[in-house]
Design a protein around this nucleic acid. Sequence first.
DNA 1: TAGCCGTGGGG
DNA 2: TCCCCAAGGCT
Length: 278
Amino acid sequence: MLVSEIMLQQTPVVRVLPVWHEWLKRWPTPAGLAGEPAGEAVRSWGRLGYPRRALRLHAAAVAIVEEHGGKVPDNYAELLALPGVGSYTAAAVAAFAYGRRETVVDTNIRRVHARLISGTALPAPALTAAEMRLAAQLLPDDDATSVRWNAAVMELGALVCTARAPRCGDCPVRDSCAWRAAGEPPPSYIPKGQAWHGTDRQVRGAVMAVLRVAEAPVPAEMFQREPADLGFAAEGIGVPLAALHRLNSAPEQLERALAGLLADGLAVVHHGGYRLPA
DNA sequence: TAGCCGTGGGG
DNA sequence: TCCCCAAGGCT
């Protein structure tokens, strides 16, 4: 449950499933993961995105072994203290893995509440205290029902009350929807999209793709050069290296991306080259 | 707290 | 094709 929830942060379930199966097969217990280098977690993360999550999940496994006897904690406060576990993930694991009554609030639940109760097309740009109060107020009193409630509202948001094109015709509660009753008013603000092309994030992603497949430390100059000129030196990493080169990013941007990866612990320098952390 | 952090499928 | 955005967390 903990592994899946962290993988599911900002990532569609269809992309998570195969990786999640691999992880549980390879590391069926926290101790198994904690016993391997963090870089193995990052490598096995594949292309799920936000690879810092892999690093934090590994760190969480270490903390679980060292501070919780190798068993994932069963309460919100101790879960929240784990690396990479925020309010949503702590509540979700306590509720769905341990049957506890927790106020689970994710993007789906926020959107359902915004429409059904508040009558707005979208929830606020950032999670508010009012939203948490509303969710807590709506939560059924007994443990078992509250768990079902959290799962049900989340599923309603994920499958029916979707962000882009809500399927109101299939909605079991459309007759009590405040947004629908109000004539489906448009959002009061335009969500600002995240820039991608030409950003450091794009370069970081391309660099990580190289490091994931590299079997030896990659010298900094290799990131700057045309892969075709590298010959045998680019053995095995030619494809992601070519993709990085295609970005045609400025040298200072590449420097910044590499420095950022080092600062985040996603890469380390070893024998004069970059590689995944040990 | 607003900005940052990956990736790829669907509208 | 382009763009939105998906079971967030951290600083």
